[in-house]
Structure formats: structure tokens, C-alpha cells
Nucleic acid binder design. Structure first.
Length: 780
DNA sequence: GCAAGGTC
């Protein structure tokens, strides 16, 4: 009798083999895939680990040419499932031949069930055996043995629900992406793909919604009354209990009443001890959020580093929903590794305790334990094993979080004074950390102590100052990556393993970018979301994911047939598609416009600036007949300006025309030209715009020395034309710096020749400092 | 060249 077992990954196969064989399993390689073999209960067992999905859906070959196939056709075409990891396919065939029992032992979730069925569908080509399912939530000995002693039936509904998701995701993604991309390409020159998907689009939608809120925000004035009081020689600031007062008259009335008042009294005093609990153990989502918030490491990068740390044996498996430890978790043996080095004080403290108790969360994904260190490593060891920037920081975060979770709460003493002035109340609060607890090992969250003076109830205070401050409400802030991950998690967008990839997709498509820790939407992303929002608003919201999710949940529950769910899902997508189709023109015009504008703006050589007649962009257009400045809004916008016929044009970014020209261009090396106005030398404001570049007082008269640039030379001359001249270096770019020479009071020159370091020295050749500097450069 | 989901 032969039993063949499939697990989701090699690690599980190895672990399960060890448990079921009592350590006697032998590993062999079949087509590059590890297989563990052993005898058990008089039967031969072969256990093979897959690599997640080994099959995937795609459209048949003849649908691959975007231009030949109407995207709508994809909605009526069924994609086909194919093996996309060939070595696994052939290995399954080899080991399954003649098997008497197949056991699917992938992760106990929807995708796991589906992955098991992928292996089953391949194996069944060469054997006709019973198929069973082993269900376990952890790789512990007791659970694995129990699962293999109580094999159950595979859950076809569960597997098929994942199947439905794959098909619907692909149908929607492929048809919408092709439709939008091809439509926009009719009007804008771009090679880029404008993708749409049930996870990536709502992810961008969150960023878009926040951007809308920021743009729509209308600031409101408010007034805030504050008092500064003195008691026992110390100052104490109180804020009027009215907080933000939006009514100016009301604020003025209170302020007027308090004016001239000399004393106030402490009318209430409370001192409370407050605990701040340590954080829950890290699941993937929480880990990614904290890596972004504390370290500024992107979720994508953080997951990759955690993966490498895991493969190097430093930390546990990084993809888990669970934020609570199992009862038999052995904290002590992990902590023993940390009794030397950076964390030794904390490790020793915990090991000296009778019991080590984590502060557990409530999420149990029945998958893997929370992310925690497996072995201790020094910075050098970690960096040698994981060659990625910030690897150590990520490891340090995981270790500190692990230890923090086991330490006692931080204790604060929070003091609150109520101060009464006439009959108006002010509040003042402060807190002092009495016991750092877990915060001692967790420098990422450092609460600030605010110490209040020791005052008693009934104490009379002198009023030092009362202010009525006008302020304005501030717009909402841009989302951080950590906040975006929270939103995605809350709305069920993506999974623990895929959330970072949806963020990456949006970055790659040029929909948004990350600036520091916050996410800024880009024009393409905003216009696309805006267009979708006004035609198929469900796409921009998390609803699209949840409506597909509820369909496939019904399949999993057995309340809806797979075929019916596909049909309903497809018609849902078709409905959205036709809405998109009916808004095509508007959508295309707007997106194509934005893409053109963006392309023009990044074409620095020809980009002039914003159009004065419309919302679009001016740029230099060169045709075989000549050149001129035109607008991207053409033909609706006919705003144009002439340009000189000859001479190389260079847009002067730092110069603006005082007469209101659209931009200033340098023509050849000869003269300047203001777009819309004409050559600067014919302008009556030329002297103001191009004042002489003075370097210092003329040594021969009371004039000033300035830089004179002609067609073929440059030198220093006098503003009073007294005849005094000096030479300047012939080669290189010359700038007059702000630096003033200590020797003669002239300005310093900066000379930068191509391929050489810039030199800086005093402009005055007769100055001693300059002579010294020049000779020192020569020596070099 | 399109999606999202596993894992390496």
C-alpha cells in the first residue's frame, strides 16, 4: 500500500514527515522537487511539498493579441487552467503512479484547499485512489498526528470557491485593463498599461478618497483661549474648556470677561495611575504597519526582508494572521539566546521570572504563530546572512516587539488640574512615567513626559497671561502606508501575503507614489479614479471585492453552485463594463489629457508651463515649418506664441518675466526671449531683469566691477567705464557666489569645468587671498 | 502586455 501526501510548501512536508516517521524519513529529489519517503503502519508514504499554487488561469493563445480581440469578448470566454510549474507537474505524476491513497495536506484555508485540488487533478491522471484531506492548524506533533488519524473528505465547495475567485478576478482584470489601456492609447501616446483589478483599484481608491477630502477641504476659523498661570513659582498652562470656539463673538465675550482678572483657583485635582499595555504579538499586517511607521521601510520590502530572515533561520514564518501564541510556546529557550548583547537586560529579567506570559491578541488564523525571533543574531551575523538594506533594523524590530510583548505594562501618573477663573474653566494635564515596563525595550514609541508643578486643590494662582488665539482647522493629512494597510485589512482587500503587492502595483502603474511615509496620488491615478468614480463608482470602493467575496462564500458554503456564481459574477462584471463603455469618451479624454500633460511636463526641454487660457500645459512644438509655443489642450485651446526662428532654445527655469511672459528662454548664447512678449533686449525692464553682476568695488575709481559677457569673451569691467578691467577664467561655467572675500571684500567666483571639481576663489586677481587659492589649486 | 493568490 502506498500513501502520497501533498503539502502547500516544502517546509511543511519536511516537518510532517519527521513527525509521522518518527525521524526516519529519507529525502529524495524528483524532477528537482523534494519528496520524503518512509514506512508507517506497514505502508509506504511519500510526502511532497508544493510551492503554493502550481496551476494558474489564463486565456487561450488566440486571445492574447490585445488589438485583435475586443476586450468585451473576454467576458464571454472562459480562461483555462494550466500547470505553470512544470517540474511539480511531472514530479506529481511520477510519485502518484500506483498510489492507493492521496492525502491533501495543504494549509487549512480556501487557497490551501484549492492548491490540494490542483495536485489531485494532476495525480488522478495516473492513479484512481481514494482522496482524503488532513486538516491541521499548526505543525505541532499532536495536531499533525490527530489530523492524519482522522482524515476527512476533501471540501470540493471550498476548493471551487477559490476557483471562482480566480476566474472572476482574471475576467475583470483582463477586460477592464485592456479596454482602458487601448481606449486611452487612441488619444495619448503611451506605452504604459493602465491596469484595473478588484484589489489594486480599491487600494488606489482609498488614496483617491483621501485626496478628494484634502482638495475639498474648506478651512474654518476658530478661536482658542489659553491661560498661563503661576503657582508656587512655576508656570502652568491651561486651555479653556470650550476648546475650539467657532463663534468669534462667543470667544470675544469670554475673553472680555477674563481681561484684567488677576487670580484663578485650582478647583479640581485628580491624580490617576494609568497603564499602557504592551502591543499584541506581530501578525503580518501589524508587522508591515510598524515597519513602515517606525522604520520607513515599505511593506513590500519589509515582507521580503522578513522572508529572508525566515529563510536564514533568524525569525519565524512571516505570513500569518495569528496574533496570539499557542499555550505550549517556549519563550524561555528563545530568550536564552538573547542573554548576551543588546537585549540581555530584558532577557535576563524575563528568565528570572516564574512564568513568562505574553499579552495575546484575539486573532487566530489557525496558520502560523505570530512573527517572532527563532535565534539570536548580532548585527554582523544578520547582515551577512541577509544582504538587504535595513535587514538589521527589521530584525531588531521583531526582537524588540517579541520582548516588549512579554514585559509588564508601562505605568504613568497622570495629573489633571481644573482651573477656575471667574466662572470659566481651564484644563491642564500632565503625566510622568513611573515605570517604563515594555517601553524600555521599545524605543519606537517614546511618550513625552509633561511635568506639572506640585499644586494643591484650592491653591490660588496668579494670572500671568490670557490669550485669545485665532487658528484655522487643517485639512486631513495624506494617508501613510501604515494607514492604507489598515484600511485594506479592514475592508478585506488582499490577504496577509498580498497586501504589499497591491500597493506596489499602484506605484508601478504610476497611480501613486510614496513620499517619505505618506502616499501622494499622481495625476494619472487621480484622473483614472475620478473617471471610474463618475462612471462605475463601485470599482473605486471596497464594495467590488466584497460583492465577489460574498458570491464565492456562497459557493464555499454550498448554498450556490459554482457555475451559477460564475454566471452571476460575470454578469456583475458585464454590468460594470457596459457602464464604463457608455462613459468611454469622457473618460478617455480626461485620462489621455492627463497622460499627455504629464509627458509634456517631464519633457523638461520643451515644457513651458501652465496655459494662461485653460487648465492644460504649454510646450514648444517643432514642425517642419518652424517652431512655436502651443497648448496640450489644442484643438479646444488655441493659445499660441511665436518663437525666434533661429538659435538653440533653453528654458530658464529660475527666471520669470516681470511683464508676465509665460517663460524666459535663452536663445543661443546671445540673448533672452520672454514667451508672449519678445526679446528681452527690446524691453524697457531689461535693466531690472538683468542687473550687472557686481563682484566688488572698482580699485581704480568709485564705480563697481561687474562681469561682462560678450559673444566670444568674458572679463570684469567697471560700471563707470573707467577703463579698469581684469580677466576671468576662459573655460568652465562661471558663477558669482555669495561668499565675500575677507581680504579685499570682493565676491568669490565659482568655476566648474566639465569633468573637473569646481574651484572657488576670490574674483580679484590683485587680492593676496586669491593668489594663494589659485596656487593651492595648481599644486593639486 | 491583463488579476490575485500561493511560495522560493
Amino acid at each position: 500500500m502506498t500513501t502520497v501526501v501533498f503539502t502547500e510548501k516544502n517546509k511543511a512536508a519536511a516537518q510532517i514527515s519527521t513527525i509521522l516517521s518518527g525521524g526516519s524519513a529519507k529525502r529524495s529529489i524528483v524532477d528537482g522537487v523534494s519528496v520524503y519517503e518512509f514506512q508507517r503502519d506497514g505502508s509506504l508514504w511519500k510526502i511532497m511539498g508544493l510551492a503554493g499554487h502550481i496551476m494558474g488561469y489564463d486565456y487561450p493563445e488566440e486571445f492574447n493579441n490585445w488589438r485583435d480581440v475586443d476586450p468585451a469578448v473576454l467576458l464571454d470566454t472562459d480562461p483555462v487552467k494550466q500547470i505553470n510549474k512544470a517540474s511539480f507537474g511531472s514530479a506529481i505524476l511520477k510519485i502518484s503512479k500506483g498510489a492507493d491513497l492521496l492525502v491533501l495536506a495543504c494549509d487549512f484555508d480556501r487557497e490551501g484547499e484549492n492548491i490540494g485540488f490542483e495536485a489531485k487533478s494532476i495525480a488522478e491522471k495516473v492513479c484512481n485512489s481514494t482522496v482524503k484531506r488532513a486538516r491541521f492548524s499548526s505543525l505541532s506533533k499532536s495536531e499533525i498526528e490527530k489530523a492524519f488519524n482522522d482524515l476527512v473528505e476533501p471540501d470540493e465547495n471550498m476548493a471551487m470557491s477559490a476557483e471562482a475567485r480566480q476566474i472572476l478576478d482574471l475576467k475583470m482584470g483582463a477586460s477592464f485593463t485592456r479596454f482602458v489601456t487601448l481606449s486611452v492609447r487612441e488619444r495619448a501616446r503611451t506605452k504604459g498599461v493602465l491596469s484595473i483589478g478588484p484589489c489594486q483599484t480599491p487600494t488606489c481608491g482609498f488614496v483617491y478618497e483621501r485626496e478628494l477630502a484634502i482638495r475639498k477641504f474648506d478651512p474654518r476659523d476658530f478661536w482658542k483661549i489659553e491661560g498661563v498661570f503661576t503657582g508656587k513659582g512655576a508656570d502652568i498652562t491651561g486651555v479653556h474648556r470650550g476648546g475650539h470656539i467657532y463663534d468669534k463673538e462667543k470667544a470675544d465675550a469670554i475673553f472680555k470677561k477674563l481681561k484684567g482678572c488677576k487670580t484663578a483657583v485650582i478647583s479640581k485635582k485628580t491624580v490617576k495611575e494609568m497603564n499602557t499595555n504592551p502591543p499584541f504579538p506581530l501578525n503580518t499586517n501589524e508587522f508591515l504597519k510598524r515597519a513602515s511607521k517606525y522604520l520607513g521601510v515599505s511593506p513590500d520590502q519589509a515582507l521580503e526582508i522578513a522572508e529572508q530572515l525566515y529563510l536564514s533561520g533568524f525569525t519565524s514564518y512571516p505570513r500569518t494572521e495569528t496574533n496570539m501564541y499557542a499555550d505550549d510556546m517556549d519563550f524561555a529557550s528563545i530568550l536564552k539566546g538573547f542573554t548576551k548583547g543588546d537585549y540581555q537586560d530584558f532577557a535576563l529579567l524575563l528568565l528570572s521570572q516564574k512564568a513568562i506570559v505574553p499579552r495575546n491578541g484575539k486573532k487566530d488564523g489557525h496558520d502560523h504563530p505570530p512573527i517572532h525571533p527563532i535565534k539570536a543574531g548580532s548585527r554582523m551575523e544578520v547582515e551577512r546572512a541577509v544582504k538587504m538594506p535595513r535587514a538589521w533594523d527589521v530584525y531588531d524590530l521583531i526582537v524588540r516587539h517579541f520582548i516588549a510583548n512579554l514585559l509588564p505594562p508601562a505605568i504613568f501618573e497622570k495629573t489633571r488640574f481644573e482651573i477656575t477663573m471667574v466662572d470659566e474653566l481651564f484644563d491642564s494635564t500632565g503625566s510622568i512615567q513611573n515605570n517604563a515596563g515594555w517601553l524600555a525595550v521599545y524605543p519606537f514609541e517614546k511618550p513625552q513626559d509633561k511635568i506639572l508643578p506640585e499644586l494643591d486643590l484650592g491653591e490660588i494662582l496668579d494670572v500671568k497671561k490670557v490669550t485669545n488665539i485665532k487658528a484655522q482647522t487643517t485639512p486631513p493629512k495624506r494617508l501613510t502606508e501604515a494607514e492604507l494597510l489598515t484600511l485594506m485589512d479592514k475592508h478585506g482587500i488582499g490577504t496577509k501575503a498580498t497586501a504589499p503587492s497591491h500597493i506596489e502595483t499602484n506605484k508601478k502603474r504610476g497611480y501613486f507614489e510614496v513620499k517619505g511615509k505618506t502616499i501622494a496620488i499622481l495625476d494619472t491615478g487621480f484622473t483614472l479614479m475620478d473617471a471610474l468614480n463618475s462612471s462605475v463608482s463601485i470599482l473605486v470602493k471596497p464594495d467590488i471585492r466584497s460583492s465577489i467575496e460574498s458570491l464565492i462564500q456562497d459557493v464555499e458554503d454550498g448554498t450556490k453552485k459554482f457555475e451559477l456564481a460564475l454566471e452571476e459574477g460575470t454578469s456583475l462584471i458585464k454590468g460594470m463594463y457596459s457602464q464604463l463603455l457608455s462613459n468611454r469618451d469622457l473618460m478617455v479624454t480626461r485620462i489621455a489629457g492627463t497622460i499627455t500633460d504629464e509627458a509634456v511636463e517631464t519633457d523638461k526641454k520643451n515644457h513651458i508651463g501652465k496655459c494662461s487660457e485653460c487648465e492644460r500645459v504649454l510646450h514648444i512644438i517643432t514642425t517642419d515649418k518652424g517652431r512655436f509655443v502651443g497648448c496640450t489642450g489644442y484643438p479646444q485651446c488655441k493659445n499660441t506664441f511665436p518663437l525666434p526662428k533661429t538659435g538653440a532654445l533653453a528654458v530658464q527655469r529660475s527666471r520669470t518675466c516681470k511683464k508676465g511672459g509665460a517663460a524666459v528662454l535663452k536663445v543661443g548664447s546671445k540673448y533672452f526671449w520672454a514667451v508672449g512678449i519678445g526679446p528681452c533686449f527690446s524691453c524697457d525692464m531689461e535693466k531690472e531683469c538683468y542687473p550687472p553682476e557686481v563682484v566688488g568695488a572698482c580699485p581704480a575709481c568709485d564705480g563697481q566691477t561687474f562681469l561682462i559677457t560678450t559673444k566670444d569673451s568674458r572679463f570684469l569691467g567697471c560700471t563707470k567705464r573707467c577703463g579698469h578691467t581684469q580677466s576671468v577664467p576662459k573655460n568652465g561655467r562661471l558663477t558669482i557666489t555669495d561668499k565675500v572675500c575677507g581680504g579685499c571684500g570682493w565676491r568669490w567666483l565659482r568655476v566648474k569645468e566639465q569633468g573637473k571639481d569646481a574651484k572657488e576663489y576670490c574674483a580679484n586677481r590683485k587680492c593676496e587671498v586669491a593668489a594663494q587659492m589659485r596656487s593651492s589649486y595648481r599644486k593639486k
